[in-house]
């Protein structure tokens, strides 16, 4: 279903089609940004004119486990030719995991004029739309960013502990094996860098991929999403919710679906996720279903 407006999303303007991108990609007011997990993909061919913003390289602080600061964000925007009023459209591999992650970080800096290309990189390629290998350069811009706001859409470990004590719901978007804590018991395999397996008490397990159509990677309609999150898993629109996964990338995909497609107003992404929680001393962990 290519017609995004007909899918009943609360904020449908944040999602654009491959067709929209094709029509708008040469506009000065639009910057297409590719964000991938696989660091080789962008250079092997990307949407013409698209810049790459890499999670590991560009969005992380290189010393602390944290994101770049105001100064770093301003520099990144400036060097990619992005102004405060530029429409930024993200797309990437893995059904837009990393695109949603980058989108989420852009929201920590208040770049509200951001969109996701529905279906991501794979849909663009399957539709045989043009690819380019050259690295585009854009004139530097003056970008003024506010201080990073970590309060509204980002949760830290203490927030999560408080959340658990108050009996509030979380969404664990990892696979059922990760959720149940089975994965750490397999012999001969790395254990995800976590000492304990299981999930945060109060979490429901809704793997991130439930939100997308497996055929073409586009988001499911609002009604289908409500069936999954609200009818099958009893979440409610006014819930205070925290999403998490292993490092916060898959859960920013679900954060995006809940916040924009279903209009939830109180969802935070816990980017510390299982790599922090599963290693912390003394925090509550639940195993099994």
């Amino acid at each position: 279903m290519d017609n995004i407006e007909s899918r009943g999303y609360i904020k449908s303007e944040v999602l654009v089609s491959t067709e929209w991108v094709m029509k708008n990609l040469t506009k000065n007011s639009v910057r297409i940004v590719e964000s991938n997990e696989d660091p080789l993909l962008y250079s092997s061919g990307h949407i013409p004119g698209a810049v790459q913003i890499d999670w590991t390289n560009d969005l992380n602080d290189h010393v602390r486990r944290d994101y770049l600061d105001k100064n770093g964000f301003e520099k990144l925007m400036s060097s990619n030719g992005i102004s405060n009023d530029t429409t930024v459209v993200f797309y990437g591999d893995k059904n837009n995991w990393w695109a949603c992650y980058a989108f989420w970080i852009f929201q920590l800096f208040g770049h509200a004029n951001s969109k996701i290309m529905d279906g991501g990189r794979l849909k663009w390629i399957n539709e045989k739309l043009p690819l380019a290998k050259d690295l585009p350069t854009y004139p530097q811009t003056e970008y003024i960013s506010p201080m990073r706001n970590d309060h509204e859409i980002r949760a830290f470990r203490d927030d999560v502990l408080r959340h658990v004590r108050n009996g509030l719901p979380l969404v664990d978007v990892r696979s059922p094996e990760e959720f149940n804590g089975l994965r750490l018991h397999m012999p001969d395999y790395p254990n995800e860098g976590s000492l304990r397996g299981g999930h945060i008490p109060g979490a429901v397990n809704i793997p991130w991929a439930e939100a997308v159509n497996s055929a073409d990677g586009t988001f499911r309609s609002a009604d289908e999403l409500r069936q999954i999150y609200e009818i099958d898993n009893h979440l409610q629109k006014d819930d205070e919710l925290i999403t998490y996964c292993r490092i916060g990338e898959r859960s920013s995909h679900t954060w995006f679906a809940l916040t924009y497609l279903l209009g939830y107003e109180n969802v935070r992404n816990y980017d510390g996720s299982w790599t922090e929680w599963g290693n912390m001393v003394g925090v509550p962990v639940q195993k099994g279903k």
């Binding site: 660091p39 590991t56 001969d188 490092i247």
Partner: peptide, 30 residues
């Protein structure tokens, strides 16, 4: 050993990617 992933790809791989690629090396050994 799985150091090969770091030696080929550098330190810029995400954790997920790193696990997947080291998984390939470990699978061979297994």
């Amino acid at each position: 050993n799985s150091d090969i992933v770091f030696d080929l790809f550098g330190n810029e791989l995400s954790m997920g990617k790193n696990l997947g690629l080291t998984g390939i090396v470990n699978k061979i050994k297994h």
